[in-house]
Design a protein around this nucleic acid. Structure first.
Lengths: 206, 206
DNA sequence: GTCTATAAATAGATAGAC
DNA sequence: GTCTATCTATTTATAGAC
């Protein structure tokens, strides 16, 4: 179920405002995926949305907040996806679905990428309750699945669950996807399957 | 054998110049590893080396060339390492040594990181014969080991060698290393072994 | 809230003396 | 080659009219 459907009441004015902000955040999301935080300029965002830069700053107080809003958006999408993963699947199969989804989002050019070392950006993210709550819920859900999959003997039990979690997160920004795509020798679907294989089965022969 | 040992003749003046440039490139290498290309400023480089910014521009014509020089340096280090890998090891063991080395360099804060989408930077790299030659030689060597390891049945033969190569390259900038390090629950050596395991054996149980 | 115009700060690069 | 001082362009952010 989409989280937007949980909204109950909203005046016409508020709906317009919300729609405008959604358009902004969607544009930011795309630009972050294309060029990254440092290379993305606020002028660019304003021009791409089709409003003046000053108007943008009425909605979001800083560039960092723009990026944080995009991260909240993708976290919401992740939560929606997790909520829709079929419960009849085994824990390992659920984890595989999640990994595949993150890679497909990245190949679609919709995965925002942030520099891990920018401190002002980190501060904005850590100040966003929506982001932290989303991140924590996603991590909790995946953590549960990871431990269940290890208990079943499907996932290597020698790996700390946190390491498995980070390894899955890292698929969302895996440069191998872009490398293989730019080599032009494989379709997107083939690329996803290759990286899925190296991620879960490893490079070694079985 | 270190490549610097192959230098035969050099005047005192040239040696001084070379030493100065080495210091610059080493500083750039460290700053690129710490903050990345976009966040690194030329003022910072100059201050860190201890010379004026204008002097820096006498040695390197642009920020992009500074970064390219750092990439040439790390490529040389990689070539030196490859040349020193024991030939009595199996192809797979050699590849494992290389992967471990790239991760150790990253954990030591000595792996420069460049944005893959910056076009002016890509242009500078593609214009650097030293870099391209180094990259090609490293890729050729690793490609040979990969194919040999697949022929031996040690490496999954269903994977295209290019995908294996990119997967190994990606370990040099794997964010999982930093994530695990900042979690503070593992030593560097443990982190390397964890990522080595997920890389070659995969997440699945065996 | 949206706009035009502008402020304020920063960064890459250069001039010109020594 | 190294320095100080400066240029030029860009970028984040804001003032103020409507």
């Amino acid at each position: 179920m989409n989280r937007a459907a949980t909204v109950v009441k909203m005046s016409f004015k508020e709906q317009m405002l919300q729609a405008r902000e959604d358009a902004i955040v969607q544009t930011v999301n795309r630009l972050l995926a294309e060029k990254g935080f440092d290379a993305m300029t606020v002028d660019e965002v304003a021009a791409s949305v089709g409003i003046a830069k000053a108007s943008l700053y009425k909605h979001f107080p800083s560039k960092e907040d723009l990026a944080a809003a995009a991260m909240v958006r993708v976290m919401r999408r992740a939560q929606d996806f997790l909520a829709g993963v079929a419960l009849e699947l085994s824990p390992l199969e659920r984890l595989r679905e999640v990994a595949r989804w993150t890679m497909e989002v990245q190949l679609a050019g919709e995965m925002p990428s942030l520099p891990s070392q920018n401190s002002s950006l980190r501060a904005a993210l850590m100040a966003s309750k929506d982001y932290l709550d989303g991140l924590m819920q996603v991590s909790d859900t995946l953590g549960g699945w990871i431990e269940a999959a290890q208990k079943e003997g499907a996932l290597n039990p020698a790996l700390p669950p946190i390491a498995v979690l980070y390894t899955l997160y890292a698929r969302a920004c895996d440069p191998v996807l872009e490398f293989l795509k730019s080599s032009g020798q494989h379709t997107d679907a083939q690329i996803v399957e290759l990286v899925m294989s190296t991620c879960f089965e490893g490079l070694n022969a079985r």
